[in-house]
Each structure stands twice: as structure tokens, then as C-alpha cells.
Design a protein around this nucleic acid. Structure first.
Length: 585
RNA sequence: GCCGGUUUAGUUUAAUGGUAAAACAAGUCACUCGUAAUGAUUAGCUGUAGGUUCGAUUCCUACAUCCGGCACCA
């Protein structure tokens, strides 16, 4: 998908279109006051204060019509420059613009405006020369948006739109949006019977159906095997913990609002856990460790519960219950760099298996001007941040640094991806923690015999299995690779009377080879079963009739293909196993 | 949580201020079939609670759900 913001021509076009939209809205809603109207990756928006009036989705065509009218009239877009005083005078009735002018840099003595016909807006520009060039646009959606992005502020109305140089590009873009909706994991999850949810169970509490749980289990086995090979030890800990545990960890103070409320039992308070760190800290503390034991890697596929804001819940991408592919790595300060590198290596080893290539690495660092916000060990921060950088640089990875985005307890690396619909989210993460081990008074005995505090790395490779599954469903459009497919082979006997026996024999043979197979022996036409096999996105469909029975072979069709292939049974099984082992997509 | 929209059968969708329709799915019957939908037939629905009305699935209110954003994601 094209990035409007990074395409110079489209950027200007869309920015001008935002002004055109504002002008049209001013014509139709005379009370409208405008905040900002920037260009974004997929178009533009404008934040508007309409007082008591409300623009609804059904009003968008009306606004588009007015925009077309203004564009057709073809007024020039003229830039003029004002002093700050002149600008303040010009916009004296508009508190939003006054706010913007006052926020400008001290050195910005000249303020520019753009005028098109009866409409003038404060703007740096640049813009196209005339509104006549704005022809191929569409207003896409409308929503509320807090003024200055702060939930304590008033909510403005935001209208999103997009503009292209020609109609074909616009149509293509709208088509892409439609296609993205088709691969939304919520839609595919329902169609392919992977998961469900129900009001009676509760909001944000999806349930995995038999087919979805097969995928889930494959993911679990996959990552546990990887981790085992890398020296991880897996544990199992309860989903509930005493509130005191979270007071010790500090989560009670920092994270309480995102937790389900505590429940009282026998005079003590318990919570559903939102994360597993405290439990794993206790496991480390269960015995005294030598420096020779470190790094100690404690992993768990752990059920967690977070009281997510209702508006944040989205299928299995973000629910109030989820399963983390969590691990805590206990290391000496000297081991931070190597262990961080191990985690990064693991992330990209896994991504290779899942064919994940479209991601963004974000290294979150502390804000050096705001040091009180963070764990106080200055030297530790500097050293660790540099080491994380070095690892990424040594690996030749592209990443962006976000200053001030680190957690108070340490810097972190996030790997972010984009879903079919909605905002970017974090898939994998590795976070350093200088605080938690001390809170639990964790120690190891160093070579000099002195007890020292380890550093912890929190890391999640698949993130949450639920979210990872959502991502894979969308990326594959529901055509899961063979090793993940809930049903790998569907067998259709040509005739139930004559071929069922042979079909059953083949089914048994495949099952003996650990292939997930279904036999469709319903009284339906072959073409009917064939169609269903395709709509269910089953990777391999076998057709077994006289020919196959006589030659002791099988005929199969690969999902999405119209060709039938004949093969010896064993050759077919070998081929499947080979694909499964190689995790072929 | 906030702004706006949404809610009709298992699913996808239609319709109406006079009591709800179709397709697919499900059940039954017939067809025994060679690569994307065989035919007949049966059963099943207006999110919840109020209000307006002679009468509400339709209008109104509240709540809930889901959707698009915003905010959130130590």
C-alpha cells in the first residue's frame, strides 16, 4: 500500500485536499472551527469543532459534493506571510488557531497562510497552485478525536479522506481497503471456525474452537521446542496471585487500573494476573543461584488477564484474556549484551519460519532530560542502551530510536507490525529490567563470593499466541501453511459405495503418519464436496475412485489450483512430511 | 473510557407502524455421482429492559454487543 506521507507529490495533494474539505465544511457548517489537518500514511484528516452540531457518515457525500463544487470553480491557492501579531489579529475569533500561533517557535517570526477563494487557513504549506487539481478524492470515515490527543480534553470531530492524482489510483486504493477487510482475522476466524465469542461469556474473552485450538497448539509446541533447544526451562504457574505479590513487584501501584478488580478470599485479596513476572521472580528466588548458573531462562505459555478498555478490544488481537509466550532471563550485568543478542536472533529465526518480512523495529530509550522518571542507575542505563544499539548495528538491522519511550525500569526493543485493519501493534518484545530483581531481593553469588542482584530480560517472541495467530491468519488470508492447517488433507471418495473402503484405508495411512485428515463421506456430489474443500481452505484434497484404487495411488489437488496430480501413496506422504518439516508456506 | 454508527434464523443478508423473507448451513427423503453448489421437503429469527401507540422488529429512552476512529497498551 502506498505511503501518502512519504510520497512528495501525494503529500502536497492530500494536504491541499484537507484544506478543500475544511473550506467545504465551513460553507455547510458556519460554526466550524478547525484544529489541525495533517497528511498521514493513508491520506489526511482534519480535526473540527462544530459546537453542538454533529457530522455523521451520511453527511460525507454532501461535503464531497461541496468540495467538487469548489474545486470546479478553480480558485487559485495563494500563500501570504504575516507577522505573529498580524496572524493573531487575523484569527482573533478562533481559539484553536490562536493556540497554534502561540505554540510556534520563538524564532518563527513569519507565519504563513493560504487562501483559496473565501477560505484562509494557517499553514506552512506547500500546496498545489489551484483547487482545480483536487479531483480524485474520497472522504473515508468520521470519528471523535481528543483535542491535542489528550483524553482530558474536549473531543473534536475528525474526518478522514484521501486524494490521488487520477481516478484509477483512487479506485485501486478503495479496492485495497475492501480486500483488507476480507482478510481481517475476525472475519476469517468466524468463517473458518477458528474461534468465537459470546456475550454471555463476556466481552473480550474469545474462545478457541477445535480447529483454532489445533493452530494454537502447533504454535505452542513450535516455540517451546525452539526455546528448549536454547536452554529455556518451562514452568507452570497459577493465573491468580495474592495482591501482596503485586504490591511487592510494584505493579499494584502502576498497573492496577488495567487489572480486573481484586477478589476477597479468607480475608486476603487476590487478583487475576495481568503478567507473569512476579511469579517467575518467586521461582528464581526458590533457591540460591551461583553466577555459574546464569543466564537462567524461565519460560511459560501463560494465561493472563487484563482489563482492557472496552474500545481497545479487537478479536484475538487484543482481548481481556490472552496467552503470553513469556520468558524471564536472569543474567549478570555482563551478560546483558549476549543474551539480548540471543533474543534478537531467536526473533528473526522465528520470523523466517513464518515468512514475516514486514515489520518495524523500535528501540525505546529513556529521555536523558527527564531522569527522575527512570530507574536511577545512570551508568547501567548508558551501558545497556549502548549495548542494545551495538547488537542491532552488528546485525545490520534497521531500527528507529524513540527517546522517552522506555519503561521506567529499562530500555526495550519492540517489533511492530500492521494488521489488515487498524493500528500498528507490537508482535515481539524484549525489555530490560533493572528494578524488579531488586524489588524481590533476588541474588546470585558471584565469583568473588559476594551476593549480587541479577538483571532481568522480559521477552515475548510470539508475543501472545492469540495475537500472533491473528497476524498469521491475516498475512496468509486464512490459507495457513500446511504445518499449521487444522485439516491438512481432505479425502473425497468418488462414490461412497465403491470407494469408501479405499478412502478409509488411505485416511488411516495418513493418520499413522501424523497427518490431520478428514474423510468426506456425505451423500453429496463430488463437485459439491470439492467446492467446500476449497472454501474451507484445506491445503490438499484427495479424490479417490476406480483409477486410484486400481493403481494403488492417490490423486490430489492443492488448494487454489485447478490441476489434479497423481502420485504414489508413499511419495505423497513423503512430500507432505517434507513440507511440514520445512514449514513451507 | 470517549465520539459516531450497528444489532433481524447457526451464517450472510432482505422487508415492514398491522406481527418477518431469501440463500447457505442443519434435519428428512430421493439421486450413487470423476474435480468449485443435484432436487424435493421440514424446522428455526427481530439483543435486553422500559416508553409512545389500538397495535412496535420498525419511533423514543436506557443498557448491552459489535464496527470505525480517539485515548489506553507500567
Amino acid at each position: 500500500m502506498i505511503n501518502i506521507k512519504e510520497n512528495a507529490r501525494l503529500n502536497i495533494l492530500n494536504h491541499s485536499c484537507a484544506h478543500l474539505m475544511a473550506q467545504a465544511i465551513k460553507h455547510l457548517y458556519s460554526n466550524a472551527k478547525f484544529w489541525v489537518g495533517p497528511v498521514i500514511e493513508d491520506g489526511f484528516y482534519y480535526d473540527i469543532d462544530l459546537g453542538d452540531e454533529v457530522i455523521k457518515e451520511e453527511d460525507l457525500p454532501k461535503i464531497e459534493k461541496e468540495m467538487k463544487k469548489i474545486a470546479k470553480d478553480g480558485k487559485k491557492i495563494i500563500r501570504h506571510e504575516l507577522s505573529k501579531e498580524e496572524a493573531l489579529d487575523m484569527f482573533k475569533d478562533d481559539p484553536y488557531k490562536i493556540d497554534l500561533i502561540n505554540r510556534m517557535d520563538e524564532n518563527d517570526t513569519i507565519i504563513s497562510c493560504y487562501t483559496q477563494g473565501d477560505f484562509t487557513d494557517l499553514c506552512r504549506g506547500p500546496h498545489v497552485d489551484t483547487v482545480k487539481l483536487l479531483k480524485h478524492f474520497k472522504l473515508l470515515k468520521i470519528s471523535g478525536a481528543y483535542w491535542k490527543g489528550d483524553a482530558n480534553n474536549k473531543m473534536l470531530q475528525r474526518i478522514y479522506g484521501i486524494c490521488f492524482e487520477n481516478e484509477a489510483d483512487l479506485e485501486a486504493h478503495l479496492q485495497e481497503l475492501e480486500e483488507a477487510k476480507m482478510r481481517d482475522h475476525r472475519k476469517l476466524g468466524k468463517e473458518l471456525e477458528l474461534f468465537m465469542s459470546d456475550d454471555l461469556v463476556g466481552r473480550g474473552l474469545p474462545m478457541f474452537l477445535p480447529k483454532g485450538y489445533i493452530v494454537w497448539q502447533e504454535l505452542e509446541n513450535y516455540i517451546k521446542n525452539k526455546e528448549r533447544q536454547l536452554g529455556y526451562q518451562h514452568v507452570m504457574t497459577p493465573c491468580v496471585g495474592n495482591v501482596e505479590l503485586y504490591k511487592t513487584s510494584g505493579h499494584w501501584d502502576h498497573y492496577k487500573d488495567n487489572m480486573f478488580p481484586a477478589m476477597e478470599v479468607d480475608g486476603e485479596a487476590f487478583v487475576l494476573r495481568p503478567m507473569n513476572c512476579p511469579h517467575h521472580m518467586m521461582i528464581y528466588a526458590n533457591k540460591l543461584h551461583s553466577y555459574k548458573d546464569l543466564p537462567i531462562r524461565i519460560g511459560e505459555i501463560a494465561h493472563d488477564f487484563r482489563y482492557e478498555a472496552s474500545g481497545a478490544i479487537k478479536g484475538i488481537e487484543r482481548g481481556r484474556h490472552f496467552c503470553q509466550n513469556d520468558a524471564h532471563l536472569f543474567v549478570t550485568p555482563e551478560q546483558i549484551k549476549d543474551e539480548f543478542k540471543n533474543v534478537v536472533d531467536l526473533i528473526f529465526d522465528v520470523y523466517k519460519d513464518f515468512n514475516i518480512i514486514d515489520y518495524r523495529l523500535v528501540l525505546s530509550l529513556r529521555d536523558p532530560d527527564d531522569k527522575e522518571k527512570y530507574h536511577p542507575d545512570d551508568a547501567m542505563w548508558d551501558k545497556a542502551e549502548n549495548e542494545l544499539r551495538e547488537v542491532l548495528n552488528d546485525l545490520g538491522m534497521e531500527y528507529t530510536e524513540e527517546i522517552g519511550e522506555a519503561a521506567f525500569y529499562g530500555p526495550k526493543l519492540d517489533v511492530n507490525v500492521k494488521p489488515a485493519v487498524g493500528n500498528e501493534y507490537t508482535l515481539s518484545t524484549c525489555q530490560l529490567d533493572f528494578c524488579l530483581p531488586a524489588k524481590f531481593d533476588l541474588k546470585y553469588v558471584d565469583s568473588d563470593g559476594i551476593k549480587k542482584t541479577p538483571v532481568v530480560l522480559h521477552r515475548a517472541i510470539l508475543g501472545s499466541l492469540d495475537r500472533f495467530m491473528a497476524y498469521i491468519i491475516e498475512e496468509t488470508k486464512g490459507n495457513l501453511p500446511l504445518w499449521l492447517a487444522p485439516v491438512q488433507v481432505n479425502i473425497i471418495p468418488v462414490n461412497n459405495e465403491y470407494h469408501l473402503e479405499y478412502a478409509t484405508a488411505i485416511k488411516t495411512l495418513l493418520e499413522q503418519n501424523n497427518i490431520r485428515v478428514e474423510l468426506d463421506d456425505r451423500d453429496e456430489k463430488l463437485s459439491y464436496k470439492m467446492r467446500e474443500s476449497q472454501t474451507k481452505k484445506i491445503p490438499f484434497t484427495l479424490i479417490l475412485g476406480d483409477r486410484e484404487k486400481e493403481n494403488n495411488e492417490i490423486s490430489y489437488r492443492i488448494h487454489g489450483s485447478r490441476d489434479t496430480i497423481n502420485l504414489d501413496r508413499q511419495a505423497f506422504i513423503d512430500m507432505l512430511n517434507n513440507k511440514i518439516i520445512k514449514k513451507e508456506f
